[in-house]
C-alpha cells in the first residue's frame, strides 16, 4: 500500500487497492509469492538506506526506492506489470477520475441527483 501511495500519488488510499491485492493473492498463488518478494525487496532497500521500515519512509524515499526497482531491468522484469502497472490500472478506473474533477467513479453508487446538477467540481 505504501508503494501504491507513492506511485499513484493518492494519500490516503481507499480500500479498493487493498481489495484488489487481496483478491489477487487469494486466487493466484504466484501473486502471493510475488507480493511477498516485493515487500522484502523494498524492505531491504529501506533498511540499506537506514530506515527501519519501507512503510514509514517519507514519500521522497519511497519514490526513490521505487524508481530504482523500476529502472533496474532485473527487478522491473519481475514487478513492473503485476505491481506497478496493475496498481495504475486500478487507479485509472478510480482515483484518476477524482483527479480529473469527478466526484466519484463508475462502479460506486453515485445516486440519481448529482448527475442532473451543473458540474460543481473543478477541472484542474
Amino acid at each position: 500500500m505504501a508503494a501504491a501511495e507513492a506511485v499513484t500519488g493518492v494519500r490516503p488510499l481507499r480500500g479498493h487497492y487493498e481489495a484488489y491485492y487481496r483478491h489477487q493473492a487469494a486466487h493466484r498463488l504466484a501473486y502471493r509469492d510475488l507480493y511477498r518478494r516485493f515487500a522484502k525487496v523494498v524492505q531491504d532497500m529501506a533498511s540499506a538506506r537506514g530506515h527501519g521500515d519501507f512503510t514509514i519512509c517519507d514519500l521522497p524515499t519511497r519514490l526513490e526506492i521505487i524508481e530504482v526497482i523500476r529502472d533496474d531491468p532485473a527487478t522491473a522484469q519481475e514487478f513492473e506489470i503485476p505491481v506497478f502497472q496493475e496498481t495504475l490500472a486500478t487507479y485509472a478506473r478510480t482515483d484518476a477520475w477524482l483527479a480529473l474533477g469527478y466526484v466519484s467513479w463508475e462502479g460506486s453508487a453515485r445516486g440519481l441527483e448529482v448527475y442532473r446538477q451543473p458540474f460543481a467540481g473543478s477541472t484542474p
Partner: peptide, 16 residues
Amino acid sequence: FANEVLYANRFAAPAQ
C-alpha cells in the same frame, strides 16, 4: 460486478 469493475484490467483477467 467486483470482478469486472475492480479486479479485471488489461494486465490481469479476474482469477475467478
